[in-house]
Amino acid sequence: MPAFRLPLTVAALASALLLSACPSNGQKPIDEGPQPGVRVDDARAPNAGLRLDTVAILDKSLQNAKGGKLAVESTGARRSPTNTVEAYAVIRNRTDFPLQIEGRTQFFDAVGMPIEGPTMWQRVMLDPQGISSYKELSTRTDVGHYYIEIREGR
């Protein structure tokens, strides 16, 4: 009897492994069709994703907090006399050379839905070690949030 026990145990284990590899209905998934878009939610990539009411620096050479060329001193938004929204960012050139950067803004409503396409890239000249500001107005009045992007001038 013990002579037959080992093969039976091995067979049972193999069957269990095979079954667990398959979905509950016993069929193998087929890799077909488009893949759903996913939001990157990974502790190793804390800067991935959209953070509203902030300034994002797109170019790697400009963005590093330690050796990056730019510092964002302040950012915010206010209402204009016609109730549109003006978003701004005060930017400092950390280098000893003049810099040309470009900024654009996207406006979102209170629940985070984009209500205006990104504005046109607006050029900002920065003197060596100098401070300059980027400002942009919305066209709509139902703005709840903004998102400013900065890149090197091109």
Partner: peptide, 14 residues
């Protein structure tokens, strides 16, 4: 760029 800037500024003028 011209059109974008002028439109936004006009719409903020009361």
């Amino acid at each position: 760029g011209i059109a974008d800037k002028m439109v936004r500024d006009m719409l903020s003028n009361p």
